[in-house]
Computed example of a mutant assay.
Amino acid sequence: MKQINLFALLFCCILSTTTFAQKNKKFDIIAYYTGDSKLIDEYEVSKLNQIIFSFCHLKDGKLSVDSAKDSITIKHLVSLKAKNPQLKIILSLGGWGGCEPCSNAFSTVEGRLKFAKSVKEVSDYFKVDGLDLDWEYPAIEGLPGHLYQAVDKPNFTELLKILRSTLGKKYELSFAAGGFQKYLDESIDWKAVTPLVNRINIMSYDLVNGYSKVTGHHTPLYSTNPKEESTNRAVEFLLKQGVPAEKLVIGGAFYSRTWQNVENINNGLYQAGEHIQGVDFKNFAATYTEVNGWKYFYDEKAQAPYWYNATTKTFATSDDLKSIKAKTEYVKEKKLGGIMFWELTLDSFRDGMVNEIYKVKTAK
């Protein structure tokens, strides 16, 4: 009897450990990375589950690594897996302005097959784990002047079908999804696409972007009014479309969006202004100081920070340690697939945004 109880106890321990491991494994910390083969070694790679090399592009309809320098970087990223068994290396296609030929290239069966075969060749050569499609955007306008057409929507589905059949079930497939309503409504056939991908990386940043003439939260967790874009709004929409929570990954911004000539009304929030260059998170502490004239605010409803400089009439919006903590807690609460961010080289080497995400992820 004692022996049976001992076996039963041992079985329960094994089962609970396995279950915990599976639950813990579902929360991925995913870093887009634009750096080189040396800079990555300065970061705490052991806290990451995926590094998405950014970017590869289309050349004659094929997935292309742009330079010898990029090849060296990808090879070095893959070598990091030896010390980090949880780590996967993903190649990303496109980016803002980087997918100009996509609409045309993916508009035919032949074009999609040609691309899928090239992805397999490149992936086998570098021994990477997957591909992230960063087409901004199918069926709606992205960078002004880039071709987009209504047929992009079904073509995107067909592209994923051929990629999945060519690359197999074990290959990681994801895509960077716009976090704003027009994209959510018009770009993707969610019911058809969801079964084909491992995850959907929601770009829940730039929701107020560089084209906006009015300030606002560019990466809020929650909407402060029914018309305001937010992370939660995109997540709730996709859950209602039937996307499993574990396939949804939300986005963090490691950079600020900034506007000048902003009047001192409502501390600059929701005011007219002219967009200018923002600041990387690693430089926040030296930039957004009272000595420099900046005042810090935190919108509890949006769970989003912002800064206003009354002297220079400048407004800034971003994620920071407090808001990225809130986003990470949201991922755990909603049982989402994880959190990704743009991008690793904008973070501090230590005690920065990645560390804050990791602390929340691993907290009991």
Rank of each mutant, 00 (worst) to 15 (best):
Y288C: 00
D185S: 07
D60Q: 15
P226K: 08
Y43V: 04
K26A: 13
V65A: 02
Y298E: 00
K295H: 10
E44M: 09
D206Y: 10
L346F: 13
D320L: 01
G142D: 02
G130D: 00
G178I: 02
G130S: 03
G94L: 09
W135M: 08
Y125P: 02
Y125Q: 14
S323M: 04
K322T: 14
T287D: 00
F180V: 06
K2Y: 11
W307H: 09
I90C: 04
V360Q: 06
Q22E: 11
L248T: 07
F315E: 01
F349H: 12
E229S: 09
A192H: 05
N84L: 06
E158K: 15
Y137P: 08
N266S: 13
Y288F: 14
P154H: 02
S123D: 08
G251M: 04
C56N: 10
M353S: 12
N155G: 02
F20A: 12
Y306R: 06
F175Y: 15
L113G: 11
K361E: 03
Y270T: 09
D36K: 00
K38H: 12
F297V: 03
F281A: 13
F349D: 02
L15I: 09
I250S: 00
I74Y: 07
N267V: 03
I74F: 06
K117C: 00
A326W: 03
N225F: 08
Q86W: 00
K2I: 11
F11Y: 06
D319P: 09
S92F: 11
H275L: 00
A272K: 14
K23D: 09
S256H: 06
Y255G: 01
A304H: 12
A286W: 05
T157P: 07
R233G: 03
E236W: 01
I40N: 08
V214G: 05
E100N: 15
P138D: 04
D134F: 11
Q22M: 11
N232W: 03
G216N: 06
W342F: 09
G252S: 12
I4Y: 15
M203C: 08
D124R: 13
I30K: 02
Q22A: 13
N225T: 08
T34P: 05
C13W: 10
E356C: 14
N266E: 11
Y222K: 07
N104Y: 13
Q277S: 12
F281V: 05
D134H: 10
Y296F: 12
F106L: 10
G98Y: 11
D280W: 08
P244M: 07
V109L: 14
V151Y: 03
H57D: 06
R257E: 11
K2S: 09
W307N: 07
E274R: 12
I72H: 12
A150R: 14
A302Y: 01
I162M: 10
R350V: 10
K213N: 14
I357M: 12
